[in-house]
Design a protein around this nucleic acid. Structure first.
Lengths: 199, 199
DNA sequence: CCACGACTTGCGCGACACGCACATAGTGCG
DNA sequence: CGCACTATGTGCGTGTCGCGCAAGTCGTGG
């Protein structure tokens, strides 16, 4: 990886981190008060540079979740090939979403702030493409003909979202991993339905 | 319904319709060129009134899809109570999304324009809340304790989205109803899993 | 018929996204 | 090692937008 590319990644993360931190500090309702200037200053760049990287505050704040989502496909591919689909997906997702202990305040900000709803959904939805490809590769289905990979990927992304919301609201009566497991088990079959397998 | 309320609904629809129409006419890439002033004028209101109803162009353009999504819960509730969950959901969704022949150009604009992605996701996701309630009511599960209703609702919303994308891309080798049916059948079980039923 | 409340509209302000031009730092070649 | 080249950071100017505020206008109920 280039020095250039590493610097780029670093400033991207710096801006994203600063944006999320300032948003949290200003409370869930004062998000509109966070000025672009503040984010840029906190990240040590000019306001103009900030929006070379992001074209809205919401995008910057949700950058971490977006990057996280992009890794789901790869996480599934790293599971052993002979593992059943449901177990593989559950294990991959749990590892990815509990490896760095998730930040309650950050997740609460992203998921429960109305102004961020659109960007948050975009962030979680970013998992779908790569995840669908990984599911298709694992199950030997053709994503161009069968809806199963894409639909399952969307369902997984949705289940992760619902699990996060439940983890935030309900309190700590269960670990995030356990909630994820029970959410995912509702929608991921051990093997694709016959209609998709028969091709 | 009041005359006031009917007028309000009418202008809301007028603005949403005008916004979508202008967006389509300007082509998928010229969306940024559609000015708020144009939308307001086309709808016969002042620009200031336009954003009494919507706080962004994207929101106005996606208003129709959002309203549509809000009706999914009610559509499911109107199915006979003894129908299995999967059949009820499939029938409800198909009826709701094919009753007015869906507008290809409009759906294409909403789903395939990057700047609209966030709002489009919001629009489709609006189905989840009422739909989860309806599923919980139908299956007798408690939405506060079981993730099944919320997760299934999210999966259904995702499946509708994927089906729409497939219908737009693939072409007309299948009816929208058929695509919806096969997408939904991937994620909606005939009956809730044992973990949810045993409570 | 009148007073109250809602919806609309015009005005103005602060913020923002982005194009453009220039400065600066990283990179690869001779 | 030095030099051109390209990618990235920055300052400035511009057009648009979201929204608070204060009339004006039209339904609604007494």
């Amino acid at each position: 990886m280039d020095l250039r590319e590493r610097n780029k990644q670093a400033t991207r993360e710096a801006i994203g981190h600063a944006a999320l931190r300032l948003a949290i500090e200003s409370g869930p309702h004062g998000l509109a008060l966070v000025r672009v200037h503040d984010i840029a200053t906190a990240a040590g760049v000019s306001p103009r540079t900030y929006n070379n990287y992001f074209s809205s505050r919401a995008e910057a704040i949700c950058a971490f979740q977006a990057d996280q989502s992009r890794r789901v496909g790869q996480a599934l591919r790293s599971r052993p090939a002979d593992e059943p689909l449901d177990q593989a997906v559950i294990a991959a997702v749990i590892q990815l979403y509990t490896e760095p202990e998730p930040d309650r305040a950050g997740l609460r900000m992203i998921m429960l702030t109305p102004e961020l709803e659109g960007e948050a959904l975009k962030a979680f939805t970013m998992a779908e493409g790569p995840l669908a490809d990984a599911i298709a590769a694992r199950t030997g289905t053709d994503p161009a003909r069968d809806l199963f990979p894409a639909v399952t990927a969307a369902a997984v992304a949705g289940a992760i979202r619902v699990a996060g919301r439940h983890w935030l609201e309900a309190g700590s009566d269960a670990s995030f991993a356990a909630i994820l497991r029970s959410a995912l088990s509702c929608v991921v079959p051990a093997t694709p339905p016959a209609a998709a397998r028969e091709r």
